[in-house]
Design a binder for these strands. Structure first.
Lengths: 136, 136
DNA sequence: TCAACTTACGAACACCGTAATGATA
DNA sequence: TATCATTACGGTGTTCGTAAGTTGA
């Protein structure tokens, strides 16, 4: 069972048609047919039934469709999460700190941070006044 | 991104080692390395970092691991569901019915059922007495 | 007879293992 | 130098598209 097989399966289920699924996926009809057949062989079940002119899901097909959609959603979320984390590779951070913290705490923290995310530039300004007071 | 890549990735994350993951999966080290590299290329992220002698997950790696485990669980559940539905291909059903129901309702129902699940044998006994009374 | 799916087959690509190379403690 | 990962490369299997065959209204 592969992602690709599930994607093809979902397209066929959505369109109730191998050929329309093929169009959507930019594949040919035989390629779609082969993927569905291979998926059916892999789990030893039948997912579609030809009823007259069009195609309907079997019970096993309906069941699998529910799982396939959940999996698909998870994959999408994972991709998005990766993209967002990717921001940490190219970000920029500006810091301001009162002198005590700046002198004793920050250097080691920043060192560890730069070590972990070398692509992020950090600008640091150390001042004698508390940050909140700088708004005045 | 493929299931196979995720499976390999999870094994590496579990063992903190490419070579032990390779053992578990009955693959060679280069094969594991290639799958991880391809997965990293696919989502444009890095999942492992070499720290001294062993390997640790990056932030992106930890994030992906959580998703991969969810996906893996879903796939397992789907497989089990398919297997259970598979029982409907080879099952056997014994029915008993009072005569009125047997005469008017059951024939069409059974016809539809046999049409849908031709592999299931059905034995039917029609009686004049309510089913519950047969326990006496 | 037309529309849709299946089968057949050759080309392109992906994945694996072996062997050689690189890095690190 | 010993261990672990990467790179290089040839063989095998998978997936694709094209073309021909089959089925059903």
């Amino acid at each position: 069972m592969t992602f690709h097989q599930l994607r093809v399966f979902m397209a066929v289920a959505r369109h109730h048609s191998y050929s329309r699924a093929a169009e959507e996926l930019h594949l040919t009809q035989p390629a779609v047919s082969a993927q569905v057949r291979e998926l059916e062989r892999a789990v030893d079940a039948t997912f579609f039934e030809r009823v007259g002119r069009n195609i309907v899901l079997t019970e096993a097909g309906k069941e699998l469709l529910a799982y396939a959609q959940k999996v698909s959603t998870l994959i999408d979320e994972a991709r998005i999460a990766m993209q967002e984390l990717d921001g940490l590779k190219r970000g920029r951070i500006a810091l301001a700190a009162v002198s005590t913290a700046g002198a004793y705490v920050l250097p080691s923290l920043l060192g560890a941070f730069r070590n972990r995310y070398p692509g992020i530039s950090i600008s640091l300004e150390v001042t004698n006044r508390a940050i909140v007071s700088q708004r005045g």
